[in-house]
Design a protein around this nucleic acid. Structure first.
Length: 679
DNA sequence: ACTCAACGAGAG
DNA sequence: TCTCGTTGAGTA
C-alpha cells in the first residue's frame, strides 16, 4: 500500500487540472501528501504539491517525479479537501490556491527557530504569564455553552458582544478547553495591528504553544511559525486572513474576531473571504466556529435569524459596567462658512476637548483618511493634481513632502507644483489626518499630540510604541484613521471626536451604509473603557442619514432592520449571490471592446440554457467607477442571482467556454466571487 | 510560467 | 521564398 507508484500533483501554475506522476523507487517514502515536488511539465521543471495517491491514467504518457522539495509535509492531508473546496468555489486553479496559502519562497535550511526563550512583544518588552480573571455571568454562560459543543461535530455560532464586554476572555477559555481535549485552535484577527494585542494575551495565557502568521513577519520567521504549526509544536495559530490556511491538523475551535471587518476579504490573486472560509474549514473539520463582533455583519445577523447559524450569543454589558458613551451629533453643514482649522473642529468638539484635557483625560480624533489634503488644486490654472497612472486626485503628504496616490502608490515631489502650468501655488482642499494633527497642535499648543495611521506605523513596532505611549499617558490627543477604531482598549480616553463621519458613505457599493455604521459604532466603543464615562462627538454632513442616525443612537437592531429591508427589496446579498467580472487593458478601446465581448458571451450563455441561467441577471458591462487605475482602463460586469448555485455555475461555464478567448492580447479578466468592493 | 507551432507582415 | 515577431494551445 505504501509503495504506490502514482501520485496526483497540483502544479503551481495557472492550470485548472491536476496531473499524475510516477514516483521512482528512491522517492517512494518522501513523495507523499502535503510535500512539494519538482516535476517535468512540458519542456521545463516546475514545482507542484502532492495531493495524494493516484491510479495510472492511460490517455497520457506519465513522467516521473524529479525531486521532493520538502523534508516533511507542509500541511496535513486533512486540508486537501479544504483546498479543493476553495479552488472550486473561487474558480481558481488548485495549484495556485495552495501556492497562495503557503508562505512565499522556500523554507530556510539552516538556523532552527529559537525555543524556550522568554516571549517578547514587538517592542521587545517581555510577556509575563497572566492569571485568568473571574468571568462575568454573561461570559460564563457563553463559555459553558461553547465548551459543551466542542465534541459534537460542526457548529457555527455568532457572538454579538458589545465593545468592552470581554469577548477575548471568552475565546481564551474555549481555546483552553479545546486544547485540553487534544484539539487545536485557530484565531483570526482582522489586521496586523490587532495581532500584537491578541498575541500578547494568548502568549501570556498559553505560552509557546502559540504561533502567529501575518504578512508583517519576515520570510524566515513566517516559515518558522508555519512549520511550528505543521509539525504540531504549536496548537494555537493566531493570524490575519491568510492564517485561515494555517496547517493545523485537528482544529476543534475556529474563532473569527471582528467578523464584520472587510479586511478578511482578499482583494487580489485568490479573492477569498477568510471569514467565510473559516466556516467552511470548521465544517470540513467537524469543528466549532465562533464569529465574534460588536457590530456583526448584515450577512451574519441574517444567518442568525434564519437559523443558518447554530447559535447566537449576546453579551450586552461591559465588564466594568460602564454604560456605552453618549453621542452628540454636530451638523457640519452649519460650519461651512468657517475657515481654517475651526471649519472641521466645531465649537462643541473644541470645548469638549478642552474640558477633557483639563480633567487630565485623553482624546481620540477619528478621520478615515490619511495625508494632509486629498484634493490639491492649482490656484493658477484650476487643474486638479492627479495621478499619472490613475483617474484619481493625489493626496498631499506633508511629512514626506510628496503627492501620493492612495490607489496605485505613485508618489512625486510636492515641490514640482502643478503638472500642467508648473505653478507652485496649490490650494489644499480635502481633509486628512495630517491636517487635523496640525490644526490640533495649533489649537492646543500645550497638549502632546500624536498621529496613528499607515504613514506613522510603517516601521516595525511603531504602532505598538504609539499605543504604549498612549497607555502611559505620554499622548493627550491621538489623531488616527480606522486603525484606531479597531479593538484597542484605551482606559484613559473619555472623548472621541469623529471629524467627518461621511467619508465611507459614498463608496459605490451596496455595503457602504453597513461599513459606515460599523465604523462609527466601533469608534464610539473606544471611549469610556476605564473608570470615567466616555462621550462621543460625531460631526457629519448627513445627520439624518439612516445609518448615521442609527449609529448615533447605538441602535444596531434598528440599523439591521432598515438595512435588511433595503437589501431584500433590491435583491442584494444576503438575498442574492454575486460574481463580479473585471475586464481591464492598458488600451482604453481594447478594454471597452473586450468588455462588450464578455457581455455578449454572458448573454449568449444565458440564452443557451434559459432553464438554468434564466435566473442570473447580467448587469453591464459598465465602466468601473475608477475608470483608470494603475495605467489600466477598467470595465465590469456583475452577475447576480437569488440562486447561489446558478451564478456559481454560470461563472464557471463562462470561464471554461470563453475565459481563454476573453483573456488574450493583454486583456485581464478577473473573477471575484462574493465581491466586496466594486470600484 | 514557459515553450513550441502556427500564422502573417516585411526583405531579397 | 525566407525570416522574425506575435499569438494560442498544451503541459501527465
Amino acid at each position: 500500500m505504501s509503495d504506490s507508484r502514482y501520485i496526483e500533483v497540483a502544479i503551481h501554475l495557472p492550470v485548472f487540472q491536476t496531473y499524475t506522476y510516477s514516483v521512482p523507487e528512491p522517492l517512494l517514502l518522501q513523495a507523499v501528501c502535503g510535500r512539494r515536488v519538482q516535476v517535468p511539465f512540458g519542456r521545463q521543471m516546475v514545482a507542484g504539491t502532492v495531493l495524494g495517491e493516484a491510479t495510472a491514467c492511460d490517455n497520457a504518457e506519465i513522467k516521473p517525479v524529479a525531486a521532493v522539495l520538502d523534508d516533511g509535509p507542509l500541511f496535513p492531508a486533512t486540508m486537501i479537501p479544504f483546498f479543493r473546496w476553495v479552488a472550486d468555489y473561487y474558480l481558481y486553479p488548485l495549484g495556485e490556491t495552495i501556492a497562495n496559502a503557503l508562505p512565499a519562497g522556500d523554507l530556510p535550511k539552516k538556523s532552527a527557530p529559537p525555543v524556550g526563550k522568554i516571549p517578547k512583544d514587538a517592542v521587545g518588552d517581555p510577556i509575563l504569564p497572566d492569571t485568568p480573571p473571574d468571568l462575568t455571568t454573561d461570559q460564563e454562560a457563553v463559555v459553558a455553552d461553547l465548551v459543551s459543543r466542542l465534541d459534537a461535530g460542526f457548529c457555527s455560532c455568532l457572538l454579538a458582544g458589545i465593545t468592552g464586554s470581554g469577548k477575548t476572555e471568552v475565546y481564551m477559555r474555549v481555546v483552553a478547553a479545546a486544547l485540553a481535549m487534544g484539539k487545536t485552535a485557530l484565531v483570526l484577527v482582522p489586521e496586523i495591528a490587532l495581532i500584537a494585542q491578541a498575541e500578547h494575551r494568548f502568549c501570556a495565557r498559553f505560552g509557546h504553544t502559540v504561533a502567529v502568521l501575518h504578512s508583517g513577519l519576515s520570510r524566515t520567521e513566517r516559515w518558522h511559525q508555519w512549520s511550528k504549526i505543521a509539525r504540531g509544536e504549536a496548537a494555537i495559530a493566531i493570524g490575519t486572513r491568510s492564517a485561515v490556511f494555517a496547517p493545523l491538523d485537528r482544529p476543534g475551535i475556529i474563532i473569527v474576531d471582528e467578523e464584520h471587518d472587510t479586511s478578511y476579504k482578499q482583494e487580489s490573486g485568490l479573492r477569498y473571504n477568510a471569514c467565510d472560509l473559516a466556516v467552511v474549514r470548521a465544517k470540513l473539520s467537524d469543528a466549532v466556529v465562533v464569529l465574534g463582533s460588536a457590530t456583526p455583519s448584515v450577512q451574519s445577523l441574517h444567518n442568525a435569524t434564519t437559523g443558518k447559524f447554530s447559535k447566537t450569543y449576546r453579551m450586552d454589558r461591559r465588564i466594568n459596567r460602564q454604560p456605552l458613551p453618549a453621542i452628540t451629533v454636530v451638523d457640519l453643514r452649519e460650519q461651512q462658512a468657517r475657515r481654517g482649522p475651526r471649519a472641521y473642529i466645531s465649537d462643541e468638539l473644541h470645548r469638549a476637548m478642552a474640558e477633557t484635557l483639563a480633567q487630565g483625560n485623553q482624546v481620540l480624533l477619528f478621520l478615515n483618511r490619511r495625508g494632509f489634503a486629498s484634493l490639491p488644486v492649482c490656484a493658477a490654472c484650476g487643474n486638479t493634481i492627479k495621478c499619472k497612472h490613475c483617474d484619481i486626485s493625489l493626496t498631499l503628504h506633508k511629512g514626506a513632502n510628496a503627492f501620493r496616490c492612495h490607489f496605485c502608490g505613485y508618489s512625486r515631489a510636492a515641490a514640482r507644483g502643478c503638472d500642467i502650468c508648473g505653478s507652485s501655488s496649490i490650494k489644499l482642499l480635502g481633509l486628512g489626518t495630517e491636517k487635523v494633527e496640525e490644526a490640533v497642535k495649533q489649537l492646543f499648543p500645550e497638549a502632546s499630540v500624536a498621529r496613528l495611521d499607515r504613514d506613522t506605523t510603517t516601521r516595525k513596532g511603531a504602532m505598538l510604541r504609539i499605543l504604549k505611549d498612549l497607555k502611559n499617558r505620554k499622548i493627550d490627543i491621538l489623531v488616527g484613521t480606522q486603525m484606531i477604531a479597531k479593538g484597542h482598549d484605551f482606559p484613559g480616553i473619555t472623548l472621541i471626536g469623529v471629524i467627518c463621519a461621511d467619508l465611507s458613505l459614498n463608496f459605490p457599493d451596496f455595503r457602504a451604509g453597513e461599513r459606515t455604521f460599523q465604523l462609527l459604532a466601533q469608534v464610539a466603543g473606544r471611549a469610556g473603557r476605564g473608570v470615567d464615562p466616555g462621550r462621543v462627538i460625531l460631526q457629519t454632513y448627513n445627520p439624518d442619514h439612516l445609518c448615521i442616525a442609527a449609529a448615533t443612537r447605538q441602535d444596531g437592531s434598528a440599523f439591521y432592520d432598515q438595512e435588511i429591508a433595503f437589501r431584500r427589496q433590491l435583491g442584494y446579498p444576503p438575498f442574492s449571490r454575486m460574481v463580479h467580472l473585471h475586464i481591464s487593458a492598458t488600451d482604453p478601446a481594447k478594454a471597452k471592446a473586450r468588455a462588450r465581448e464578455a457581455g455578449d458571451c454572458c448573454t449568449a450563455l444565458k440564452n443557451s440554457a434559459p432553464a438554468v441561467f434564466g435566473a442570473v441577471e447580467v448587469l453591464g458591462p459598465v465602466e468601473a467607477p475608477i475608470h483608470k487605475l494603475a495605467s489600466r482602463y477598467r470595465w465590469q460586469i456583475l452577475l447576480k442571482s437569488r440562486s447561489a448555485a446558478a451564478v456559481k455555475s454560470f461563472a464557471a461555464r463562462l470561464l471554461a467556454q470563453d475565459g481563454q478567448r476573453l483573456r488574450k492580447g493583454g486583456v485581464r479578466l478577473v473573477v471575484d466571487v462574493d465581491p466586496f468592493f466594486m470600484m
